[in-house]
Amino acid sequence: MTQLDSGALGRIGVTLDVRADGGHRDDAAMLESLGYSTIWIAGGQLATLDPLRDVIRATETIPVGSAIIPARMYASDSVVALRRDLEAVDPGRLITGLGGAHGDRPLRAMNAYLDSLDAADPPVPAGARMLSALGPRMLELSRDRAAGALPLLVTPEYTARARRILGEKAILAVMEYVVLESDPQLARGTVREPIGFLTQVGGYARNLLRMGFAEEDIAGPSDRLLDRLVAWGDIDTVAARVTQHLDAGADQVVLVVQPTDPDTVPHAEWRALADALIG
């Protein structure tokens, strides 16, 4: 895959949790059979890059993306080796999602990382990689030096602004937390901890402030913030939020499905969402 295409990427992607027992391989095959367009593996679970290989080997044709490979954890040569190995046996399957260039100068750090990917032999082409972008300058970098952007913890209003910055050609894949639960207390409680953790990482808090949230919303996180960032409720409510992102300019909405029981895998939710959103 030298150039990602928004049409081939599809409209509905989904994240997959890595399981210690290896069950994520069977989960990946199930997600492909349900018709999801893309499987994404969250970077916080990538203690190694092996799960990306595992999921590609466990599926037939579905694109598999890293969301994201954190630059602060993995040297560029690890990413080059991963892509080289997978292209040799399953060409066109890996979407190289990159991010995690935190610190005082994240833009400079990411530019340097991309320089090293460009200079590698073989390179990781700009058209085969996406960036976990939030702020305007990182979105511009996603437009200029990648196939597009993969933002998390954003609203449909943000999606519209991001599309204006990216222009018409760059891909915008928006990650959306989903809880299929209509009880407000239970739904919010399901995502309060993971979202609260993310707001302490990197540029998420800064971006939430840019989006109009107050510091007390972020510190909670407040019910207001959770209600704006999470699609919770019944299937129709979730479908409406997905439609809002797509109408605002997203090429793909990536469902980050959170079961109310943290010890379960959301097989039932994946099936219900596939029936409603993919048909």
Rank of each mutant, 00 (worst) to 15 (best):
A8C: 08
G10A: 01
I12A: 12
G13W: 02
V14P: 05
E32L: 00
E32F: 02
G35S: 00
Y36Q: 01
Y36C: 01
T38C: 05
T38I: 07
I39L: 02
W40F: 12
G43P: 05
G43V: 06
G43C: 02
Q45I: 09
L46G: 07
A47W: 11
L49K: 08
P51Y: 10
L52G: 08
L52R: 09
R53E: 12
P63H: 02
V64R: 03
V64W: 02
A67R: 00
I69N: 07
Y74F: 15
S76K: 03
D77M: 10
V79K: 08
V79E: 03
V79A: 09
R83H: 14
R83W: 14
D85T: 15
L86V: 06
L86R: 08
A88K: 13
A88Y: 01
D90N: 11
G92H: 05
T96P: 00
G97V: 00
L98T: 15
L98R: 08
G99V: 14
G100Y: 12
A109K: 15
M110T: 03
L114I: 11
D115T: 04
L117F: 06
L117K: 05
A119S: 15
A119E: 04
P122S: 09
A128T: 08
A128C: 06
L131S: 10
L131A: 10
G135T: 13
D144A: 12
R145I: 12
L150V: 15
L152A: 15
L153K: 11
V154M: 12
T155N: 15
Y158V: 03
A170I: 01
L172I: 13
A173K: 12
E176Y: 01
S182L: 02
S182I: 00
D183C: 04
G189N: 10
V191G: 14
E193C: 09
I195F: 02
Q200D: 02
V201K: 03
G202W: 02
A205E: 02
A205C: 03
L208F: 10
R210L: 15
M211T: 15
G212Y: 09
E215T: 12
E215A: 10
E216W: 06
A219Y: 07
P221I: 05
R228V: 01
G233W: 10
D234Y: 00
D234N: 09
I235T: 14
D236P: 06
T237Y: 05
T237N: 11
T237Q: 05
V242N: 03
V242G: 05
V242F: 05
Q244S: 14
D247N: 14
A250Q: 10
A250P: 08
D251T: 10
V254M: 11
V257A: 03
P262Q: 01
P262S: 10
D263A: 13
D263P: 07
H267W: 09
W270I: 02
R271D: 11
A272M: 13
L273Q: 05
D275L: 09
